[in-house]
Design a protein around this nucleic acid. Sequence first.
RNA 1: GGCGACGUAGCCAAGUGGCCAAGGCAGAGGUCUGCAAAACCUUGAUCGUGGGUCCAAAUCCCACCGUCGCCUCCA
Length: 468
Amino acid sequence: MSLQLYNTLTRQKEEFKPRDAQHVAMYVCGPNLYGPAHIGHALSYITFDVLKRYLKFRGYGVKHVQNFTDIEDRIIESAKKENTTIEALAEKYIARFLNEMDSLNIQRADVYPRATEAIPTIIKMTQGLIEKGMAYELDGDVYFRVRADEDYGKLSHRSLDEMEAGARVAVDERKYDPMDFALWKSSKPGEPAWASPWGPGRPGWHIECSAMNLNEHGAQIDIHGGGQDVLFPHHENEIAQSESYTGKQFSRYWVHNALLHLPGQDKMTRHLGGLVLIPEALSRHSSDAIRAFILGTHYRSPLAWTEEGVDAAERGLERLRAAVKDAVASTTLDGAADAALNQAAAETRKKFIAAMDDDLNTAGALGTLYDLARDINRARGEGASPQDLAPAQATLQELAGVLGLMLQEPKRAVSADESEKINALVAERNALRAAKKYAEADKMRAQLTEMGVEITDSAQGTTWRKVR
RNA sequence: GGCGACGUAGCCAAGUGGCCAAGGCAGAGGUCUGCAAAACCUUGAUCGUGGGUCCAAAUCCCACCGUCGCCUCCA
C-alpha cells in the first residue's frame, strides 16, 4: 500500500504520487500577521507538520514552503491601531509565531517567503493576466475576470451562478462580475504602496500565494494545504490566477484541515474572538499533550478544544512516556518472550503505517502506540533487561516522533537552591522511612506535595520531580 | 437558498460489507508497594430513529430527527 490522501479537488482519497518519485513540493498557507496565532493555527500547522514528517518517514524529500502574509488590509488596520508600521508589526508577529511553533515541536518550513518580497512577481503575474484577457484595470485597481476562467469554482465545487444567487457581499457595480476579485489595489494616501504600471498600490489578498509558489516551487506543486476556511475564496482564486497565468495544473493535491472551536461556539478565528492563544495553552499543557489531543481526531473532522480533553491526553501520554524509560531489572527475558516483544514492535510498525497511509489516520496510529507501550510495560514487569526492551522502545520512540511526540517528562525548571532544599527533605524523609517512622514520613510527603514536588519510591531509591 | 460534513460505551475517538466493534480518559475490582504513585491484569456498546438491499450492514440506499461547517475577513 501507499499513502492515500483526500484531495479536495476530486473529493476523494487518491493514491499520493508526486511528480518526482523522490521529492515533494508542498506549500502551506501561512498566517496573516495582523495578530498573534491561536490554537486553531496550532491544529493546522501540527496537521501539516505530521504530513511532512510522515512523507519524510516514507522516504520522500520534502521542500516545504510556508508564506507570511505581511501586507493586507487588516495589517494596515492593526498597525494603525498599535501606532506602528506594518513592517514592525510583521516582524513582531513573525518572531512570536516561529517561537510558538518551535514550542509545539513543529518543524520549520524550508522557506518562509513574504508577500512584500514577492511584489515584482506579483506585478509580473498581474500584467500577464491582463495581457491574456484574464484581468482588467479599473481606476488603478486590477481585477481577475472570473467569467473568463472556464473552470472557476472547481476546487470549492460551486458554480458562479450558484454563488451569486446567495451572495452576501455588497456588489461593486464597476466590476464585470460580482465575483471578480482584486489582484492589485490602488492605495489611498498614507497607506503602504508599491509602484506599479497601474499606479501606487498593493497586492490583493490571493495573488501573493500564487506569486510565492511560482518563486519558490515553479509552476507546479504536489501538495497545497490550509484550513477549510481558506478553501473559498482564497484557494479557489489562487488556482484561477496560477493556472490562468501558467497554463499548467497548479497543485496536484489540495489538503484542508477542519477547524477547531470551543464547545458551543463557532470556529476559533481572530476577528470573532473567543481565542485560546498558544502561550496560554502551553502554560497548562505539554506540547506532546496538545499534539496528542489534536491528533486524536482525524484532521478532516472538526474538533472542540476542552481543557479536560487535553488533560486526558496528558494522562494517556504518561503511559507512553513510562514505556520508553529504562528498564531496571538485571534479569533478562527468555528467548521466546523477547522474540514476542520484538514481533509486537514489528506489528505495531505495520499497523501504524497502514493507519497513516489511510489519509493520515493519526487517531488510529496513536492507538497502535498505546498497544506497543502496553507490551513494553508488561515485559518490563516480567523482568526484561534494558537490552530486551531497547528495540521495541526504539520503535515506539521513532513512530511517536513521526507524530512529533517527544515522550519526555514535562519538567519544571528548578533552581540549584531549590533542588538542594528538596534533596535534603527527601533524604530526611527516607531516614524516617528507614527507621519505620511512617507517619512522620507521610507528613513529609504531604509537605513536599504542597511544594509541588512529586516523589516516587522504588527499590532503586526515591526520585522526585517538580510538577507545578 | 446552494454545497458539504457529522451522529459509535459516562466523555473523547478509530473502524465504512463478514475475525470477539481499535485506542485514550473516567469508573469498578485485583496484583505489586510500609504508604502513595507508576505499571500490569480483569471489567462496559446490538454503532441517532424508522424502513430497504444483501447469505451477511455501524459500514450501501431512502426517509426522518438532531448537530455542525462553507458560501464575507479567517489556519
